[in-house]
């Protein structure tokens, strides 16, 4: 297991570095720059940094104007505010006209644990995924974050980048070939496929170890691009293992699990189980919340066994 680096720190540094290499990057922030870490960019490039105060609707609307002028705006706030307060201009201005805007929503899932359910984002991907023209990238470690920031800056079109507040082990190394739209097999296996997105990938890998102790061989996929999703890697894995579990720090309605089910039900019907949120969580220690709300390695392991049991019927 690699050392722990907070995703938000990796993001802030990647954005600052991008600013040095690309003069077209402008950064918008809604008064949480110290939390999103967009402040790193702001300190080095004050002329390209727009902290508009607590006005997410206006921040997202403004970003559209910059995009029409040939700039590449990176828009920052908490994931939950981006996709509730900012959803109108996201749909009407950015998605409808395929504006080249990068919406970077941090504190995804339960990672803003002590602030409670009002600040935790468990619906963000569902909102964004239902809107045409949107791409969703959700990252699992510091290296993937850095590569994703670079990749979305080069991608022409609207992207929602899902970031965590939490520290996560660095799993990938610098040689990691990150491509938007391409799923990644991080562990091979035969009996079941565990499909994860975001930092919960690490608990998913631990679940695969637990399954191994019981003689069960689990394949693990990292789906960093939730939309458009890599259909081929899903279908191949489903065919090979015959049972699938999706794992996401997000509602089981409308996110990764739904996306995988849409593909497999149409193209390769496969028994599935879903690890995700089904209710609002609460304030508390992050690891305790993950445990309590069903995201622990043991909970993932148990869902995997349920999925396997279904294929044997």
């Amino acid at each position: 297991m690699g050392k722990m680096i907070a995703i938000r720190d990796a993001y802030g540094e990647a954005l600052q570095d991008l600013g040095r290499r690309n003069e077209k990057i402008v950064v918008l922030e809604a008064d949480v720059g110290g939390s999103t870490k967009s402040i790193l960019f702001g300190k080095e490039f004050p002329d390209r940094y727009f902290n508009v105060g607590i006005s997410e609707f206006n921040m997202v609307s403004m970003s559209t104007g910059f995009a029409t002028q040939g700039f590449t705006p990176f828009v920052n706030t908490f994931a939950v505010f981006m996709t509730t307060r900012g959803i109108d201009p996201i749909q009407t201005l950015i998605a409808y006209d395929s504006m080249n805007v990068k919406l970077c929503g941090t504190y995804a899932g339960l990672s803003d644990s002590y602030d409670g359910a009002s600040h935790q984002a468990i619906t963000d991907m569902a909102f964004i995924r239902s809107i045409p023209n949107m791409t969703i990238v959700s990252v699992s470690d510091a290296v993937e974050t850095k590569k994703a920031v670079e990749a979305i800056s080069e991608f022409d079109g609207p992207v929602y980048l899902r970031l965590s507040r939490a520290a996560a082990p660095v799993y990938f190394d610098e040689s990691y070939d990150f491509r938007i739209g391409q799923g990644v097999e991080v562990r091979d296996g035969e009996d079941v496929t565990l499909i994860a997105t975001g930092t919960i990938l690490h608990n998913t890998l631990k679940a695969a170890e637990l399954l191994k102790e019981e003689g069960i061989s689990a394949k693990v996929l990292n789906i960093h691009t939730v939309k458009p999703i890599d259909e081929k890697i899903l279908i191949d894995a489903a065919e090979q293992t015959g049972a699938v579990v999706t794992v996401e720090e997000h509602s089981i309605y409308g996110g990764l699990g739904s996306a995988v089910a849409e593909v497999l039900s149409a193209k390769c019907p496969t028994p599935m189980e879903f690890v995700g949120a089904t209710e609002f969580a609460e304030s508390g220690d992050y690891d305790e919340l993950l445990e309590k709300y069903g995201f622990s390695p043991e909970a993932i392991r148990d869902k995997a066994k349920e999925a396997i049991a279904k294929k044997k019927i």
Binding site: S61, G65, F66, T68, Q69, T92, D97
Partner: peptide, 20 residues
């Protein structure tokens, strides 16, 4: 220059354009 219709969006977008 801008898709519009749902009201209240144009001034913020225009501000972004003007800054650009």
């Amino acid at each position: 220059e801008l898709s519009a219709g749902p009201l209240g969006l144009g001034l913020g977008a225009g501000l972004g354009m003007a800054l650009g």
